[in-house]
Design a protein around this nucleic acid. Structure first.
Length: 639
RNA sequence: GCCGCCAUAGCUCAGUCGGUAGAGCGGCUGAUUUGUAAUCAGCAGGUCGGGAGUUCGAUCCUCUCUGGCGGCUCCA
């Protein structure tokens, strides 16, 4: 460390090295380097660590500016916004005890130990925040000793707990904004004027993380340096809401819900077409990959779930019923049925890997507050399968699955993320098997070269898993597919096969779904495509539009012709204007709209309008039929 | 399940300071026969989510139940 009084050497992003006098701030150095940064630079990166612009340079090192465009800069804006919320709320309710206020992927939140909040409180908080922004209240950093910090926050047991975690002898930093002081590592934007685009999204009580802990009130928001950026965000959010699959489901008559069956989707005729197309897509893979399809009961007696472990670990999520004095449960997963089929007769190693697929309705009791359109329901169908394999075969099976996932999700133009979920707190079997299975899954993820995250303790109660996550239009992640390597359930069901060595062995079971459930996958796909499903999935693929009644019989002929080619075709009778019928076709998300007028009838052509494309093209009837059929067959988007 | 908010026609919403309700779209009928995102007119459609209370009188105020929405927790 350099001694006080001598200059430090700082390397700037362009490689330039400058001498910095002691006490000079990071902001001063950077502004001298590039005056244009003045309006955009909200903090700095010193030797890779974010620091306040006001922080003095205390050593040699690298220095770079941080703006809102940097992830770290964005987080600083979010976190500073959270401070502003805390300042406003503690001014309003002095006895409120702030706890933590971190940035999140979308914005930020701040949790308070305080009486239940009301919408009026929020209005007051908004007003106070606007005031702080208008007067550009500065964020001032100060370092104090642990004891000083403890004295400062003596009225707040939450902060005292965080202070207690600080290693002895290390200074504690606090930031003040006006009269509000918060325990905080920082850094922050220089002043509240940088938070002109701060916006409170809402508030809610949050479930305590310890059983005896207080219920905290969470205020959520999102921060932007300017009002214009906030407006842009709000506009995007409004657009995302317009893609809500629940709205599209009604408009396109895909599915419905009724009050009398909360969480149980009703599939309408159009929706069934989409579901069946997806099933067909999956079945083609199953045939190619040598699966056999089965169907097992929706209800089993309690004893089956005692064997599988569901009774002990999953009972709260199961619908149950009494039949002639016997206790039954609706199956929440397909595995028990598959296990029983494997066990139903002696098995040879020659049969392995045995891949059993089942698309049965499953029922899970989900708490009412968690239900959400198609993405969280109580009855659903998984593209489920169980692969019974020898330990040596598992790796190849997982590899095939990862390949299939990549190909399948690419077909839908979806981007996905893998998550490796490891042994949970309550688990079946012994830890050694879990370690083995977890290591195998991680090895496969590494080998496939894809990115993944590890979710420690998030595995199923019977096996670790690779989960696939995709996002809805508001950026909320949803888990869809899953691959689980299970040593436990085969053992519990007493599954055995005779090996080439003549001995009996227990198989390993790979539980897997690719799309997760039809319901959730389609919900997310609808939002992803704004309802513009690829032609092969569209309930109506072609709509024929006769210009006037003179053209109706030709149009009917074309409808028959195209239906003969296996296409799903509808006719829009000429009792409305062409414009109105075109508009309806767009709103109905019809991929191909063809107009027949005098010209087309005369030369046997069609005027084709692609969904969302204003320019239309003319081609012969036969050309169009071949074109549409080909697009559908290849399962391509168009456009 | 927990916290907050919401529930009026098939959909989106207006309205009644307490005296039982309207619009647009959609539907039906008629006129119009239209060249690529809304032709015109008429008609039908509502026990104002269910129950209870207050009141001479409740869609409106209160309570409660049900469902939905946004979070939390949980999850495919």
């Amino acid at each position: 460390m350099a001694t006080s009084g001598s200059a430090f050497t700082v390397t700037l992003p362009d490689g330039q090295r400058v001498a910095v006098a002691p006490g000079q701030s990071a902001g001063t150095v950077l502004r001298a380097w590039s005056p244009a940064l003045e309006r955009r630079m909200l903090a700095a990166l010193f030797n890779g660590h974010p620091v306040d612009l006001a922080a003095p340079v205390t050593a040699d090192g690298t220095l770079a500016p941080l703006t809102f465009e940097d992830r770290a800069g964005r987080d600083i804006v979010q976190h500073s916004s959270a401070h502003l919320v805390a300042k406003a709320l503690t001014e309003l309710i002095p006895e409120a005890r702030p706890t933590v206020g971190p940035p999140t992927e979308e914005g930020f939140y701040y949790d308070f130990d305080v009486r239940p909040l009301t919408p009026a409180d929020l209005d007051a908080v908004r007003a106070a925040m606007a005031q702080a922004v208008a007067s550009s209240d500065p964020f001032a950093r100060r370092e104090v000793t642990k004891a000083e910090a403890a004295a400062l926050f003596r009225g707040n047991p939450h902060k005292l707990r965080y202070i207690a975690d600080v290693p002895e002898g290390e200074p504690v930093s606090v930031y003040s904004t006006g009269a509000f002081v918060d325990l905080c590592r920082g850094p922050h934007v220089p002043d509240a004027g940088w938070l002109a685009g701060v916006h409170i999204l809402g508030f809610s009580a949050i479930t305590p993380n310890t059983p005896d802990g207080p219920t905290l009130q969470r205020i959520r928001g999102v921060g932007f340096p300017t009002r214009a950026e906030l407006d842009q965000y709000l506009k995007l959010r409004a657009e995302a809401e317009a893609r809500d699959h629940r709205v599209l489901g009604r408009r396109l008559e895909l599915f419905d819900f009724v009050e009398e069956a909360p969480g149980f989707p009703i599939w309408l005729p159009n929706g069934m077409v989409v579901v069946r197309e997806l099933e067909q897509f999956v079945r083609e893979h199953l045939r190619a990959a040598d699966y056999r399809e089965i169907r097992t009961p929706l209800l089993f007696a309690q004893s089956v779930y005692e064997t599988s472990g569901h009774w002990e670990h999953y009972r709260e999520n199961m619908f149950q019923t009494e039949i002639e004095g016997r206790h039954f449960g609706w199956k929440p997963m397909n595995c028990p049925g598959s296990m029983m089929i494997f066990r139903s007769r002696a098995r040879s190693y020659r049969e392995l890997p045995l891949r059993l697929a089942e698309f049965a309705p499953l029922h899970r009791y989900e708490a009412s507050g968690t239900l959400h359109g198609l993405t969280r329901v109580r009855e659903f169908v998984q593209d489920d399968a169980h692969i019974f394999a020898t330990e040596e075969q598992v790796e190849a099976e997982v590899k095939t699955l990862l390949d299939w996932i990549a190909s399948a999700f690419t077909t839908f133009r979806l981007t996905w993320r893998y998550e490796l979920s490891t042994r949970p707190e309550h688990f079946l079997g012994d830890a050694a098997d879990w370690d083995k299975a977890e290591a195998l899954l991680e090895r496969m993820l590494k080998a496939s070269g894809v990115e993944y995250r590890v979710s420690a303790g998030e595995g199923a109660f019977y096996a670790p898993k690779i989960d696939i996550h995709i996002r809805d239009s508001l950026g909320r992640p949803w888990q869809t597919g899953t691959i689980q390597v299970d040593y436990q359930m085969p053992r519990r069901f007493g599954l055995q096969y005779q090996g080439s060595d003549g001995q009996l062995h227990t198989p390993v079971v790979v539980h897997r779904t690719i799309f997760g459930t039809w319901e959730r996958f389609l919900g997310v796909l609808l939002e992803h495509t704004a309802g513009r499903l690829p032609p092969w999935m569209s309930p109506t693929q072609v709509r024929v539009l006769p210009l006037t009644e003179r053209h109706t019989s030709a149009a009917e002929g074309l409808v028959d012709e195209l239906r003969g080619e296996g296409l799903r075709v509808g006719l829009a009778a000429p009792d409305e204007s062409v414009s109105k019928r075109i508009r309806a076709a767009e709103l109905d998300r019809i991929p191909y709209t063809v107009v027949l007028g005098d010209k087309e009838v005369a030369d046997g052509s069609v005027a084709l309008r692609l969904r969302g494309v204003k320019e239309n093209r003319t081609m012969s009837r036969a050309e169009f039929a071949a074109y549409a059929r080909d697009r559908v067959r290849r399962r391509e988007f168009d456009p």
